[in-house]
Every structure is written in structure tokens, then in C-alpha cells.
């Protein structure tokens, strides 16, 4: 991506930013994150359809933040993550410059996060057909069937926490599972403990997850944990009206409407 390389070089040269986060060619036909701090490294930047890792996971990482102002090559999911992170006061215009990559693989420059937000809001978060089908299949199952499905699916989880590490929204310096007073979720990988962990993860991401699938892509065992957050996303849409990350405004799960509808409270 010539435009991106040129822009990265310019930003580093003029010291507008200290580091540009983008993708480079990896091993095994994979791409991976590249941190450009010297202009000559910018030539390694690439962008193509394989670049799916959500780079926003790096912008809250201490080692990267400590470098100074960052620029980030951001696809639509990355931009959504950034807006959500900004709304949670994790990034702002003074420490982050977004180099947007449109769904048509065009570089767009944004002066500030408000412009990013405007851009992002042109697109709806859509759940792809394959996952939609899976969700439908699960909905149609009976309760014991669903229980069996999830216990079986989550049984292999060995709690490497790659899902958490890859998720831009999981930036807490101390996760609930790292607390031991009380120990909410067992440290060891157990049938119920695994379910508890993924339930907790899904609920903490409700109204925050922007459906980038980073957790699923990171899972070394390909457990479909993204179905949980997708389900939450769809439900949030159904109950509380569409969901788009926004710089200002209430967070879905930390607000309420006096007329929120439900049908199960006696």
C-alpha cells in the first residue's frame, strides 16, 4: 500500500508521531503487526485481505503507549474499536492518529476522532451469513441441547486467554479472573470454570464488542466464542435499538430507559 508507506514515512520524518502501527508480511502466509519507528521500516508495511488482526489491541498496551503518539492503520473494525476505546477514555486525539483503510482498501486521513466516528457511522455492523446461520441453529435447539453444545465446545478451552489478549476491549490491567479475593472464576480449566469465564467475558463485552472476531481468530482451538458476543450484539439491537460505538453518549449497559421492555419479571 504505497499511500500508507508514504504517509507513515512522512509522519515519522516530521516526528508527528513516534510509531506507526500497521501490518507486515508474516510467516506461513500470515500477516502480522508492524511497529514503524524508523522511516526505513515503513517499506515493510502491507495491506491486503489477510490483514484481519485487530490492531487496536495494541493502542492500550503499555509498551506501545510509552513510545509516544501513535498512528494506526485502521480498517473498519479497528476504527470502531478505537471509537469505543475513546468513549471509554482509553485513547484521544492527542495520543492517536487514525489512518483509515476503507472497505475498498483506500487510505483515508482523519484529522480527529470525530471524523473517524462520522466515517464509521456510514456502515452498520452486520453479522456474516455463516455465523448468522450458526446463531439460528442454536436458537432452534432445546435448552438441554444448547447446554450440551456449549459444554462440549468449551471443554477444550485451556484458558490461555488468547481471546482476552487479542480483544481491544479487554484492556483491564487486572481482569476479573486475575482477582483471587474472592476467586470468582477458578484458575484451573474445568468444565464449569470455562463456561463461567466465557459467560463473564461475553457479558463484560455486551454493548462494547464491535464484532471484529479477534477473539475467535486468536483462539488456538478455534472455539466459536464469538457467537456469544454476536448474540449479545443482536439482542442489544433488538431490545435497545441499534448499536454503534459513539464518542459521546451513554454506554449501553451502564444506562437504562424507564420503559425498557422485558417479559420475564413478575
Amino acid at each position: 500500500m504505497v499511500d500508507l508507506i508514504k504517509k507513515a514515512k512522512e509522519l515519522i520524518e516530521t516526528s508527528a508521531v513516534k510509531v506507526v502501527i500497521g501490518y507486515e508480511e508474516g510467516t506461513g502466509n500470515k500477516t502480522r503487526a508492524l511497529f514503524v519507528e524508523k522511516t526505513e521500516d515503513a517499506d515493510r508495511l502491507i495491506f491486503d485481505s489477510r490483514c484481519v488482526q485487530n490492531l487496536a489491541a495494541y493502542i492500550t498496551k503499555k509498551e506501545i503507549k510509552d513510545k509516544g503518539k501513535m498512528a494506526i492503520a485502521a480498517t473498519l473494525p479497528v476504527m470502531r474499536s478505537i471509537i469505543q476505546l475513546a468513549s471509554e477514555f482509553q485513547v484521544n486525539d492527542s495520543n492517536l492518529l487514525v489512518l483509515g483503510i476503507t472497505p475498498e482498501s483506500k487510505l483515508v486521513e482523519f484529522a480527529n476522532l470525530v471524523e473517524v466516528e462520522t466515517f464509521v457511522h456510514q456502515y452498520q455492523i452486520e453479522i456474516d451469513a455463516r455465523n448468522k446461520e450458526m446463531l439460528d441453529k442454536l436458537e432452534k435447539m432445546t435448552q438441554p441441547e444448547r447446554w450440551k453444545f456449549w459444554i462440549d465446545e468449551l471443554a477444550p478451552c485451556f484458558k490461555c486467554y488468547a481471546c482476552r489478549a487479542a480483544c481491544p476491549m479487554c484492556y483491564c490491567s487486572r481482569c476479573t479472573v486475575d482477582f483471587n479475593q474472592p476467586q470468582w472464576i477458578p484458575v484451573a480449566s474445568t468444565e464449569l470454570g470455562n463456561l463461567e469465564w466465557h459467560l463473564m467475558r461475553a457479558i463484560h463485552l455486551t454493548g462494547r464488542c464491535i464484532d471484529c472476531d479477534a477473539c475467535y481468530n486468536a483462539c488456538p482451538l478455534s472455539i466459536p466464542i464469538n457467537l456469544l458476543t454476536k448474540k449479545m450484539l443482536l439482542d442489544a439491537k433488538e431490545h435497545f435499538g441499534g448499536y454503534q460505538p459513539a464518542l459521546k453518549g451513554d454506554h449501553l449497559m451502564s444506562t437504562y430507559k424507564p420503559d425498557d421492555k422485558e417479559n420475564f419479571i413478575q
Binding site: 503487526a33 484458558k159 488468547a162 482476552r164 489478549a165
Partner: peptide
């Protein structure tokens, strides 16, 4: 720099032996 600090490498490794001891 790009390492996210998950445990995937250790958990799939045939020789990684680090462990924790916990009470249930």
C-alpha cells in the same frame, strides 16, 4: 513488541511445565 501476552504458546508446547497450585 507484538506479543500480546497470552498463554497459547505455553499451552500447546510439549515441554512447557509452568504450573499453578490452587484450592477449590
Amino acid at each position: 513488541l507484538r506479543c500480546l501476552g497470552c498463554g497459547a504458546c505455553a499451552y500447546v508446547c510439549p515441554t512447557c511445565a509452568c504450573f499453578d497450585i490452587e484450592d477449590e
